[in-house]
Design a protein around this nucleic acid. Structure first.
Length: 403
DNA sequence: AGGTATTCACATGAAACTATTCTCTGAGTTAGG
DNA sequence: TAACTCAGAGAATAGTTTCATGTGAATACCTGT
């Protein structure tokens, strides 16, 4: 097809001429650092009080923070430490800080990597592999102890770390202080999981939990305030319909007060509106955005599935074209067929059974245990994905799996 | 008719196996002294 | 000689299989009327 230069030119012209809905989209992204954090002044004040001794070169208590996702834990912590650092330049106290998100695989899911990346945060390069773990400890300790200073170690999503590796790392970290001559470290653990601290070594528990701070979920009104504040930066004037903010806030409040979600929703709604050439974000854009986010989530989920699970999912999709309620056995048969077609190894039914449960957990399918009396017990399985989306996914899977 | 024993088609658990990834060690290499 | 690199041994781990045991209720099989 011939490219219509003029058309394209026009399109660009129009785009430039059009008044943009966004003035600074950054403000709706996660990494944006607002000047003002609404409804968290209590927590920030407490944080400040706990951490303030650092300014006089005393070691602040270790701190454990918990609250659900999107309640501002990370943001408030970084905010407070940032301010503390600024202040310390005036008082002359030496403070440094290393932030580590334990969720990130490949960066922080073993003891070695945690220490290595902490060292890296503090400006000490450590080889990715090859050194004994205690050697890395030494490098780390030497680096820390090279100056008389206070070091904040922020371990975000610390529950993941412990779930994977047990609490030994934490134990070593809490003990490091006794090996340091000049400097002092202050641990700050952030966790989504409230119960996590319960099943941790009591020594670690008492050491890490010298102080505790809870971040409650935002309610709809608070979310609305947050959205208003950010939207003033992010959107051009008068480009938001009056009820839009409230709607976004209400939606996110339903999902356990997650501010991240609310911001996402607002951003996507804005993008939807912009793409459909409207100058104001309205209610139905939010609806569309909601759908879009959900679809994205599913796509992302399916894409990252291991290929065996994809085969099973494909089997389920395919079979559900003719039958609505599937059974494990039927799926297994179909799955075996598909394996033969694309020459991949066939897993046992035992494993398939587990994989089906996983797919159920992820919400991609619905699997309910039923007993059919004389005809045995099995799972009754059906896909929960709307058929239009299912077709797209099937096409993707088909080419990817070479079927 | 009413009761209970079977039986089906998997579920669920535990342990063993396996392939891959990590950690660690020591030999080899490099570069500076 | 200290610092670095790298191959390979051994340990840890995730994914899977094997073996064993469990399960709820429709159905088959009694049993006494």
């Amino acid at each position: 097809m011939e490219i219509m230069t003029d058309d394209l030119d026009n399109l660009f012209e129009e785009y430039i001429a059009k008044k943009s809905i966004f003035s600074n989209k950054e403000a709706l992204l996660l990494r944006y650092f607002p000047e003002n954090i609404p409804h968290r002044s209590d927590q920030i004040k407490k944080l400040g009080m706990i951490l303030a001794p650092a300014l006089k070169n005393n070691k602040p208590s270790n701190l454990f923070i918990y609250g659900k996702t999107g309640t501002g834990k990370t943001l408030c912590t970084q905010f407070t430490i940032q301010k503390l650092l600024e202040k310390s330049k005036l008082t002359g106290a030496k403070i440094r800080y290393a932030y580590l998100n334990c969720k990130l695989k490949k960066i922080a899911d073993t003891e070695y990597r945690v220490i290595a990346s902490l060292a890296k945060e503090l400006g000490e390069q450590v080889p990715i592999t090859g050194l004994p773990t205690d050697e890395v400890y030494n490098i780390f300790i030497n680096k820390i102890d090279s100056e008389d200073q206070i070091i904040f170690l922020v371990l975000d999503e610390i529950d993941r770390l412990v779930k994977k590796n047990g609490d030994e790392i934490l134990y070593s970290l809490t003990r490091i202080n006794s090996e340091l001559k000049n400097s002092k470290i202050c641990l700050i653990g952030i966790s989504n999981d409230v119960r996590f601290i319960e099943d941790v070594d009591p020594r670690v528990k008492s050491s890490l939990g010298e102080e505790e701070l809870i971040f409650p979920p935002y309610n709809a009104l608070e979310l609305k305030d947050i959205l208003r504040e950010r939207s003033e930066v992010a959107f051009s004037e008068d480009s938001l319909d009056a009820a839009v903010l409230a709607k976004c806030a209400a939606y996110a409040a339903k999902e356990h007060g997650d501010a991240r979600r609310a911001l996402d929703l607002l951003r996507v709604a804005g993008e939807v509106a912009e793409r459909s050439n409207e100058e104001i974000v309205k209610m139905d854009h939010i609806k569309k955005a909601e759908e879009k986010i959900e679809i994205n989530r599913i796509f992302e989920l399916v894409k990252t599935l291991p290929s065996q699970s994809k085969l099973i999912l494909y089997s389920i999709f395919k079979l559900s074209e003719t039958i609505k309620k599937l059974e494990t056995g039927e799926i297994y048969e179909e799955y075996k067929n598909l394996c033969n077609i694309n020459n991949s190894a066939i897993l046992t039914q035992r494993r398939i059974s587990d994989l089906i449960s996983e797919l159920d957990m992820l919400g991609l399918i619905n699997a309910r245990l039923i007993s059919k009396g004389r005809h045995g017990r099995t799972r009754e399985i059906y896909s929960t994905i709307p058929s239009d989306l299912k077709e797209i996914l099937m096409k993707d899977l088909k080419s990817e799996l070479m079927l």
